[in-house]
Nucleic acid binder design. Structure first.
Length: 246
DNA sequence: TGAACTTCAAGTTTCAGGGG
DNA sequence: CCCCTGAAACTTGAAGTTCA
């Protein structure tokens, strides 16, 4: 999808991009190798230069380049290209919005960090990622982490699944969407929400309730790994919706 | 050729919604 | 309980088209 994206070319919006597809210009190579459609020659040289720059950026796996040049609402187009370098993030907090658990996953592994424990490792994992994936993380997880850890560097390419699913017509929060898509929670965490996670932490912190602690970690684990399946589903649906309109 | 109209892209404002 | 952004609707402005 990324290679057939022209929205970052000067004077191209969704309308002209669709027209180009219709005329048979399907990716950056076509822009470089084919002559312009009649009446569009005034744009052609600039667009060819941008197509060249985009090919170089993709070859260098430069996710920042695309995040900075594409409108945020179309960042999802870069998902397949940076899937292997994605980091999935979900945090839990206490009632004062203080971080209690930082849950992270990369392509192969899930990590849970408690409070400030091993924070260097958190910095490293996030710093090395080329794409960040969250649910409502732009409004919640990222601002909270940035406030507490001021020099934590996030990838600019941040896929927040919340607005994407809303655009696809799914109402409600993460758990509601999972139910609609047939993604199941374990028996242990069934029916729990974010506020329950706050209470589980309190039970552990003040009453050393080991069971509550285990449940909290399971809850975070499921939140984080479900992001992986949701990301793929969102991409498929957005891609189909974009192509259908051509 | 120039005035009126059309077509897009891009900038601005407003408000509803999901996280712990 | 408290936290915050983004999409939609509307406006502006540049460039193109039509027609006398």
């Amino acid at each position: 999808m990324l290679k057939r994206t022209f929205l970052h070319f000067p004077n191209v919006g969704e309308r002209r991009e669709k027209l180009l597809w219709k005329y048979g210009y399907l990716d950056w190579e076509d822009i470089i190798n084919l002559p312009p459609p009649s009446g569009w020659s005034r744009f052609w040289l600039e667009w060819q230069k941008e197509a060249e720059r985009s090919l170089v950026a993709l070859d260098q796996k430069n996710s920042e380049y695309f995040a900075l040049s594409l409108p945020t609402s179309h960042w999802w187009r870069a998902i397949p290209e940076f899937l292997n370098e994605a980091v999935y993030l979900d945090i839990e907090t206490d009632e004062k919005m203080d971080v209690t658990v930082i849950g992270l996953a990369d392509r192969t592994t899930y990590y849970a960090f408690l409070e400030d424990e091993e924070i260097d490792k958190v910095y490293e994992i996030i710093f090395n990622a080329k794409m960040l994936v969250t649910y409502n993380g732009k409004n919640f997880d990222v601002p909270i982490l940035k406030k507490k850890f001021k020099d934590l560097k996030f990838p600019i390419l941040h896929i927040d699944l919340c607005p994407l699913f809303r655009r696809l017509g799914y109402k409600g929060g993460l758990k509601a969407i999972e139910t609609q898509l047939g993604i199941e929670r374990s028996h242990q965490t069934q029916g729990l929400n974010g506020w329950d996670a706050v209470k589980l932490w309190q039970k552990w912190k003040y009453f050393k309730d080991k069971q509550a602690f285990e449940t909290l970690l399971m809850y975070n684990y499921e939140d984080v790994v479900h992001l992986k399946s949701l990301l793929k589903i969102a991409y498929e649906k957005l891609w189909k919706a974009t192509i259908e309109l051509v």
